[in-house]
Design a protein around this nucleic acid. Structure first.
Lengths: 338, 338
DNA sequence: TTGAAAGCGCTAACAC
DNA sequence: GTGTTAGCGCTTTCAA
């Protein structure tokens, strides 16, 4: 039913080799033959069988992305944007994108293993890196190509793109401290994530410039969802000596905190100041609009993807390590403490 | 470097045929041989070359999903949840998921064509259906397997899962009308989308039960983003004879409308009532929490995926058409008009 | 119960 | 410039 190279060969009375060469643009085919072949191929509606090509070439022209889905309700605007960035770039460069969704854990590792063993992908993009990242260790141990979005505790052995979360939180800290807040609370990402301690450290460093420290009781650890922001923000706000500013380590949690504050009759940006991190589109339309740190997620997706593909094609050998300087986006969720 | 069936064959002194049969669980292999082969395969760390299998079997065990990304900043929590639903189900059933991201238009169609012609996928999941959907017409004309999430103007020729948006909007209408609102505005999805007119019709039908009609000047068409909700909601609120309730056709636009109202010093759920559609997680944490209609997107993703795979495997021949009854989720963004 | 051989559709080394 | 041939790794007839 579908046209093969052989069919074309028979039609033009040439060998399949010649057809193959013409199709692949080799120049050891006479112009006339080439013309003829190209023309008939088009007429017959030929298109190559991808799997035959891949089997022969021993490469899949496919990159893998395994999304860590924490909850069943994996509804994260951040990831859909990242996906678009990766997907569009991959398509531009002629690569397929194979996506798997697994929750972190042993099953996740098996998925990596399976894809490698079945030779189904040429490389991976690893997202949401952990401090000690078994996925990365595994990939490293097998010498399999990958690029990470994010660093780890030990990241001089692989290529990555990351945003400088330390610096980003420093900006937040300076901003909040500049607003004269002193009772500052923080809701951290899960501790095992690589960016968790960097953000905390940045916050502390920024605060230190103003001779401020973060009180132990003001630190909480969330899971990056609105729900946990709501819960932990509530706890913080119910403290006898309530913080006047709450720094959430991502926008989603910040929205949860806002909601908790509003439930308690507090006006966000008046009675309590709240900040986020990521600058997802929603943060421009929350009430009040959220002060946060921007991450160019779409572009990062594109960069990571391109780096990986170049690595696969061996256009680059060296490690590439990119650290982006984030930008503070001031909106209306904070005000000066008086 | 990687183990092939041939290597195992040599090791156990059997033909590759026998090895293949043992590995594939055929029962015309003696138990001992089978044991031996399985054992050595494991020892040698054998795993089959996917592309060789696929070439031979003439099927890809892969389903395709082409996400329509409207804006470069494709940040839609709805889709990440859908993706998780599809992805997890696909993995469970042993299928790969190939994801492409393209903005609607000619390029999008080429992507479908390319994947089919290269025999890279066995079927597609089509999302965000249009009234006249060229993607679906194309797939139908080629007789290529697919299942749609959503209907079209002419949808008795293919399998789909859809939520009954007509009914959903009826619920909204009845709720709003029951709250004594009369000046009710509506922000529709883009007209070319299939669910657009269904939602409008449902709204009108629900209103009609209360002898209410939708005024022409109160109808707007958005693009499903917060931004357009903000813009159009603003227009509506600036009307000399301002509506008292604004029905947005998805949650994201509803958030935009809320933000526009708040910018104008209006209290949402007091001065103006606002509703959404989808019930994305954010709608529970907006200020105020949003009254909306629930869509079980994760489950829908799973259903659609399973239907497609059954269709591919020819376990089902008949068309499957599922229409889900939605549920109204009442939160705090509306109040009785007095 | 096993094996030889053909073939899936393509590429490439080599010879002419 | 073109064709012959082998081979990518696997499955599956067919014959023994």
């Amino acid at each position: 039913m579908s046209v093969r190279i052989k069919d074309i060969a028979e039609r033009v009375n040439r060998s399949i080799t010649t057809v193959s060469r013409a199709l692949n643009g080799y120049d050891d085919v006479s112009p006339e033959t080439k013309q003829l072949i190209l023309k008939t191929a088009k007429e017959m509606g030929y298109s190559p069988n991808t799997f035959a090509q891949r089997l022969q070439k021993q490469q899949s022209d496919t990159i893998g992305l395994i999304l860590p889905t924490f909850s069943p309700r994996f509804s994260d605007p951040y990831f859909s944007e990242l996906l678009a960035g990766i997907g569009n770039k991959a398509a531009d460069l002629g690569f397929d994108l194979l996506v798997s969704t697994r929750s972190p854990g042993p099953e996740e590792n098996e998925t990596y293993e399976k894809l490698i063993d079945g030779r189904r992908v040429d490389g991976f993009i690893v997202v949401r890196t952990r401090k000690q990242d078994q996925r990365i260790n595994y990939l490293l141990s097998r010498g399999f190509p990958f690029v990470a979005f994010g660093r780890t505790d030990d990241c001089d052995r692989f290529s990555y793109v990351d945003e400088d979360g330390y610096f980003g939180m420093q900006l937040i800290a300076e901003y909040i401290a500049g607003l004269k807040h002193e009772k500052i609370a923080c809701i951290l990402p899960p501790q095992d994530l690589a960016f968790s301690e960097k953000r905390l450290a940045g916050l502390q460093a920024g605060l230190a410039e103003f001779d401020l420290t973060l009180r132990e009781e003001y630190i909480r650890e969330g899971d990056l969802t609105q729900k946990s922001g709501y819960q932990l923000g509530g706890e913080l706000l119910d403290l006898p000596d309530r913080p006047t500013a709450i720094v959430a380590c991502n926008d989603l949690m910040a929205f949860g905190v806002m909601s908790a504050a509003q439930d308690r009759g507090l006006v966000v940006g008046e009675d309590v100041s709240i900040t986020g991190f990521d600058d997802i589109p929603m943060s421009e339309y929350s009430y009040p609009p959220l002060t946060t740190v921007h991450q160019p997620v779409y572009q990062i997706g594109g960069m990571v993807c391109e780096m990986l593909i170049r690595q696969i094609c061996e256009e680059i050998q060296d490690l590439q390590q990119v650290l982006l300087k984030p930008e503070l986006i001031i909106r209306q969720s904070c005000r000066s403490y008086t």
